[in-house]
């Protein structure tokens, strides 16, 4: 039996204490927003907050989380209104979306520690794997969530292939026309 506080609610769970928190969340509590990706704390798809720190739940025994505050993607905000979620929406970050719960949890933790992260801070903190390769938009969305920068994200040029010198730079659908 393990007693966990998840997203502000207390759960008494009949699981072996050594069960990874990830599988308790997914298969017992039913919070499937936290994903299984690798099981060895490499990819970060399983990232959750424990007492405010981002941690990879696939290698954490459930007993480790007992008596601590666990927050999953479902508890990050009530309605998707966390600044990171809003920035992710603004930049249309997800492709397949599978890793994005973990990416968002990692970004939210980064911003709590460093409200105005530099590119180097982002590169150091955001080690989660995204197989679709949404990294450019993740970087831009973190800057947007920090309110520090509006440029970045996708850079798109639509040109006339026949006459490259008359090309026009087309802004994409965000606030980031910069080339």
């Amino acid at each position: 039996m393990v007693e966990l506080n998840i997203n502000g609610r207390s759960h008494k769970l009949d699981v072996e204490p050594e069960t990874p928190l990830l599988w308790v969340l997914r298969d017992v509590v039913g919070l499937t927003g936290t994903k299984y990706g690798c099981g060895v704390a490499q990819c970060g798809s399983c990232s959750v907050h424990i007492n405010g720190e981002v941690m990879r739940s696939c290698v954490l025994p459930a007993s480790f989380a007992a008596g601590k505050r666990v927050v999953t993607i479902e508890g990050l905000s009530r309605d998707g209104s966390h600044p990171v979620q809003k920035a992710w929406a603004q930049h249309d970050v997800p492709q397949c979306g599978y890793c994005q719960s973990g990416q968002i949890m990692a970004a939210a933790a980064l911003l709590r520690k460093k409200p105005k992260p530099t590119d180097a801070d982002i590169e150091e903190a955001m080690t989660n794997i995204c197989r679709c390769g949404t990294y450019q938009r993740i970087r831009a969305a973190i800057h947007t969530a920090a309110g520090s920068r509006k440029d970045g994200g996708s850079v798109i040029h639509i040109v006339d292939a026949a006459v490259p010198s008359s090309s026009v730079a087309a802004a994409d659908n965000r606030d980031n026309a910069g080339a």
Partner: peptide, 18 residues
């Protein structure tokens, strides 16, 4: 070893439609 955020350059996309 899959590419992570740090490995990616700034990528610009050119669409040159005919």
């Amino acid at each position: 070893h899959i590419a992570r955020l740090v490995h990616l350059p700034k990528v610009e996309t050119v669409i040159a439609p005919t």
